[in-house]
């Protein structure tokens, strides 16, 4: 990577941000394509996977979480994890995942 010293600290240069953005755009394209092309039984898992990949990429690279202090990751992922836990549990009691 031909970045300045400061950038090496983050492991990211402007060029690599653009690369990430291109990947994100490509995934978005794929997501939209599910609306036109029939993915069959793969439809749901594929969409959810792509959503998660995009989410994690933005958080890790654009928000620097991957390169930053672990304390930030702890704070953010605790919130995210609790949210997933309590709301999925609540939805489960509504039999949301059964149908």
């Amino acid at each position: 990577m031909n970045a300045t010293a400061e950038h090496q600290e983050h492991g990211m240069s402007d060029a690599s941000y653009i690369k990430i953005a291109i990947i994100l755009a490509a995934i978005t394209g794929l997501e939209v394509s599910t609306y036109y092309v029939d993915f069959g039984p793969l439809f749901m898992p594929a969409l959810l996977t792509m959503m998660i990949v995009k989410f994690v990429m933005v958080v890790s690279y654009f928000m620097h979480l991957k390169f930053d202090s672990k304390i930030f990751s702890f704070l953010f992922y605790t919130g995210l994890g609790l949210a997933l836990f309590v709301y999925c549990t609540a939805l489960a009691t509504f039999k949301f995942f059964v149908s």
């Binding site: 609790l82 836990f85 309590v86 549990t89 489960a92 009691t93």
Partner: peptide, 18 residues
């Protein structure tokens, strides 16, 4: 403490598993 809230709702018909 984040995983026990529904004990306030035992009488609301949550279903036996919950």
């Amino acid at each position: 403490g984040f995983g026990v809230w529904a004990h306030h709702m035992f009488a609301s018909g949550l279903g036996p598993v919950s």
